[in-house]
Design a protein around this nucleic acid. Sequence first.
DNA 1: TAGTGTGAACTTTTTCACAGCG
DNA 2: CGCTGTGAAAAAGTTCACACTA
Lengths: 282, 282
Amino acid sequence: MATGRTHRPATRSRGIPEATVARLPLYLRALTALSERSVPTVSSEELAAAAGVNSAKLRKDFSYLGSYGTRGVGYDVEYLVYQISRELGLTQDWPVVIVGIGNLGAALANYGGFSARGFRVAALIDADPAMAGRPVAGMPVQHTDDLEKIISENGVSIGVIATPAGAAQQVSERLIAAGVTSILNFAPTVLSVPDGVDVRKVDLSIELQILAFHEQRKAGEEAAAAGSAPAPSAPSGDGGVADAPGGAGAAPVAAVEPPAGRAAAALRKNGPEGEVPAVMPA
Amino acid sequence: MATGRTHRPATRSRGIPEATVARLPLYLRALTALSERSVPTVSSEELAAAAGVNSAKLRKDFSYLGSYGTRGVGYDVEYLVYQISRELGLTQDWPVVIVGIGNLGAALANYGGFSARGFRVAALIDADPAMAGRPVAGMPVQHTDDLEKIISENGVSIGVIATPAGAAQQVSERLIAAGVTSILNFAPTVLSVPDGVDVRKVDLSIELQILAFHEQRKAGEEAAAAGSAPAPSAPSGDGGVADAPGGAGAAPVAAVEPPAGRAAAALRKNGPEGEVPAVMPA
DNA sequence: TAGTGTGAACTTTTTCACAGCG
DNA sequence: CGCTGTGAAAAAGTTCACACTA
């Protein structure tokens, strides 16, 4: 993302495509599972299935790492685990701090998979003085005042932000000033960070909205297709999704105000073009 | 992902690129913030900055939705909020169930932004009988036995899985059989689902591993560049990241076993090619 | 005049298909 | 023979740059 791709063509031909990097952890997980079952080798086909990708893509991905397979046989599981781990930088362990120990932060702190693979929670940090010293996941929560000290004393370069949205930008600035160069952001905000700092975000509501988009599309197509293709097992008798039966009394009210005023002018421009049913203001 | 792109070219030219769909929630959030500050219009430049993308991309994205801007002026905030909301299917509200009320599930249930934008938590479900009836986020946890009933009675089409990895596949199957067609998966597993079901995954450890990759790369480049480019404010005197000063005594031990046995054979093939320092077995 | 909307160029990612090797 | 490794083609996504218009 902010990995300054333009001004340095990587130390040689060592440029692994970003899309590939993003899949390596997937392969690694699948391989680890195989390793635990003492499976000695896998074919690209099998491994791809386990990782949920297609085999051509997997082979191409691996080809960026080197020729680690054996033609006619497949890949040596242990060896590949090692190579991918190394490529991902998991042969060393990374101290990580979690900032914001609310519901989510605490859940993250308790998450086992954290320490499992090369990461170590070095500290939990929260701005609430009442939290200070209280143990979460067997570790005392420390106060934000000590953030800089904690970062530098532990050589932390990866920070996890689980604060409310309002605090996230400021926290990121302090983390970065203290030496952090990679941030995993759970707060629903866009962080602006200097070049050379990587940010990845995890956002529940964005993911849900993407699903809603596809869900809506499905509902539309289903309706259009009438009774031809079998609907994927519609629940009760009614239209299924578009109209939520009032469980807790929350009727399907429009969650968003229809436009009015100056918006109406813009609206006129396109008019209620096809696809738009109901909800559209009169 | 599993959106069967091959066997139906979408109902016309209504094909909004997936990459664009993934950004719409971002724009929506930025627009909502502007709306709350009663800003009437924004330029692509301003909005793009707020959403953390560049303006050309934003304009292109919007062009897939229609011509909603005004040349020389910009976009009407309210109107755009409405259009994007509609496009994403947020003008109706979507009942959602959360399965797996552990640390994470509870955190999700408590997450405000959930209900804020078109989503309503219809039920919390857990397999642990001890959890049944206990209130979480002001809502009684229900037992997995009633999963199917809950789904169909509430017309739920979106499910969130926050169970341990081992349970996730089975839970997804039950959800799908009961009528769910979109799943947000927090469990660290690949779910295999039938065509027509969308799955999005959120995976902490994958994100961290991707960050570690870039972090490692940075450390490498930094070392290579010697004292030329100024390191992004190195904490204490030493090399910064590659070597974590023993805070809690956890030295940077190799987290992964070096290969051996049959792996060694494969190793010989490539030999200890350049880039690989230390850690490599003798 | 300021800023949208968009063809066209370019980049990245995916897929195909098959030569080549153990 | 079976399966990897990879060029080459196709598709998807991004960026450029400018005509156009409110």
